[in-house]
Nucleic acid binder design. Structure first.
Lengths: 386, 386
DNA sequence: TTAAATAATCTTCTTACAAGAAAAATACTG
DNA sequence: CAGTATTTTTCTTGTAAGAAGATTATTTAA
């Protein structure tokens, strides 16, 4: 924290106000942030000088006085590229700095770690090309389904079998722009913060289910990382003593009750006709399959128990459930709710809202973009703003 | 965050360096904090002007050059009073600003909420009088065994049956100095941070057991409060589905397996001769009582499970166990350790140390003082430093 | 046409960090 | 013992940037 810290803090807050509320005026920024008018004025003019934002006269309501000028992120100011690596596919997205999507595509992936740099380099180049924009790429964000520590080392990716890879160095060759890597749960949480349900919420707990169960702790306006940046592994909260075995080697983890493989396995165990993936589970549920409905109902109960622990521990304004949890809302929401009422402390539960993510369904590829945007606008990173 | 924020931040860090390392020199402060020499010099001379710290030439090692001057908190600069309210007793402590204890006493308490202001007023006056110091009282900190929200409202104190009391207003009449109230777990954690095992650790999870089980989340150098300041109720993590009933109304809470009443009840249930309190449990354990040893061993296992969840969620450098957990270290440490090895994620467990508090046994009354000191030196509170 | 109102910018003032020079206080060296 | 080297602290100067108020710009209403 040096003496320009406050300046960067101001610049940042102003940038994000403009990003979130296009055509906002300086006066409105002042109202919303409490910053001094001269601070806002000087930073806004700096931004316009840099070509980062544009002023646009807006047909104001017939009102006396000098009309306010609307501010917006210039579409030509720069691009962000997001990459989401999964077990069998890699998603690419190009956005402009305000987060509006220009292009996206999904490519099948064979899981070869060595080929990653080349694979991403081609993919990124292709999607940037396809975007038709000639703006410079300002940041690349890569989301990975595993443990990524704060040095950018990939500690473990269970579904791909990768361990202890200095992934950040690997990826430096992909682009000249700064590269940011992150865990998929944190990336998804960041997407909710940047573009989704929590744009104005400084504290929320994000929990999602997919091939595993993960999450993130968004506390005091940022993702909490702990000692090594690994915090937020909510899938490995213990929910049952001596419970089911988990891919992490322990037993009784939440992940062993809520992940896609765990649900598939449980349905099979109970004699249901084994679905191929989560979409099939949902189809079965829609069709009224009793076994599947029971499994999802029980999953909701386990989820409710875990969420009640999170509420009691964090007293969060919002708990946000994403991924498959969001898709299965109709089948596990009720039992979760019952568990919450029974188990969460009333003083805290009454002040929390547990909600399901919309981003998870609508545009699940924004995680990478979000960590790129966060990286590029972070207060101590290699950020692009004065 | 205004423009004097950084100044206060600097002043604060310097104050606590001097508090923690008496006779530290300016150069050493510069080395440890990275602040500029002129910043340290100007703040130190401001402090001496205010009479808050003193300079003292120290017989330096025979070394060339101008000798450094040792800095210390002036004993006459002010007093902090800490009050710890429990079910049947209230503890009072007077410290000077560096945290050294001048006097302390414990008074029996009848639990009468209405009489609290008078009771504390007399108690505080008596203990300040007894301290023999004529320095002004700069802050009063009161620790309470229940939920205290960030407004200073007491939401619920189970052991005393108090609910929804605006305790902070009640206590304003006790002294002219600023008054701070807090939950006992947070107060104890703050004591560990100020005076105990975590003086140089910015991130730790504190968990203690007494009449209930509580704790605190010390994250990024401060206690995390959540939406209403209620975060950190670690006693109400769910450890067993449909498990034992808890005083909070839910079931399966950690508190129902680790609190003093829970342990007493379990020993009785298993046919042991019912001990009167935790000290008796320890005596029994020392005497080799099989039932008690088993109960404590099982408690260690449950504790290990909960701590492994905490490690997986927070990736903390330190998990600190206090209160009765610390006292029973010899009887539940081993089973806890086994559970941790089995259940905590290796990548995170290898970077965490789980330790037992020494303060909890040595001087359990420092919680109130710690929240007073924290309040008085907080960056946005009514703090006494320039 | 003038006055009032509103938004944005400009001017002036002040705080406080940053970097370097100077001063203070000691030990070593010849 | 005088002079030099060394180390710590303070002082001086420069600069960034927030805070507050004055000024300018641009509109509607009277």
């Amino acid at each position: 924290m040096d003496r320009s810290y406050l300046r960067r803090y101001h610049a940042n807050a102003i940038f994000h106000r403009i990003r979130l509320i296009p055509l906002i005026s300086q006066r409105e920024i002042i109202e919303q942030t409490g910053f001094d008018k001269s601070v806002v004025s000087s930073i806004v003019s700096k931004f316009t000088e840099m070509g980062l934002i544009e002023r646009q006269s807006k047909p104001d309501a017939n009102r006396r006085g000098r009309p306010s000028e609307g501010l917006l992120i210039s579409p030509a100011s720069g691009l962000l590229v997001g990459v989401e690596i999964e077990a069998d596919a890699v998603g690419f997205v190009v956005c402009s700095l305000d987060g509006s999507i220009l292009t996206s595509k999904i490519e099948p992936f064979d899981g070869d770690l060595g080929g990653i740099p080349q694979f991403l380099k081609r993919g990124v180049a292709a999607v940037v090309e396809a975007s038709g924009s000639s703006a410079p790429v300002l940041g690349l964000g890569v989301s990975l389904p595993g443990l990524v520590n704060s040095d950018g080392t990939l500690v473990h990716v269970p579904v791909l079998g990768w361990r202890d890879v200095d992934i950040l160095s690997h990826l430096q060759s992909v682009t000249d722009a700064p590269v940011f890597v992150g865990n998929d749960g944190k990336a998804a949480a960041m997407a909710e913060r940047m573009f989704g349900a929590c744009t104005d919420i400084d504290d929320f707990i994000y929990l999602f289910s997919g091939s595993g169960v993960g999450g993130a702790l968004f506390l005091d306006g940022k993702i909490y990382g702990g000692a090594d940046g690994l915090a937020g592994e909510l899938g490995h909260i213990k929910v049952v003593p001596q419970g089911r075995f988990c891919s992490c080697g322990a037993s009784g983890c939440l992940s062993a009750y809520l992940s896609e493989p765990a649900l598939l396995h449980e349905i099979e165990r109970l004699g249901g006709k084994a679905p191929a993936d989560f979409s099939c589970i949902l189809e079965g549920a829609e069709g009224g399959d009793e076994i599947i409905l029971n499994v999802l109902d029980h999953a909701g109960e386990v989820l409710g128990s875990a969420v009640s622990s999170l509420i009691n521990v964090f007293n969060p304004p919002v708990v946000l459930l994403g991924g498959n949890l969001s898709r299965a809302k109709a089948y596990l929401g009720a039992s979760m709710q019952r568990a919450l009422i029974r188990l969460a402390h009333p003083a805290m539960y009454s002040r929390s809202t547990v909600q399901f993510s919309k981003i998870s369904e609508g545009m699940p590829l924004l995680g990478g973009v979000a960590i790129a945007l966060d990286g590029v606008t972070s207060l101590d990173g290699p950020h692009v703003f004065k």
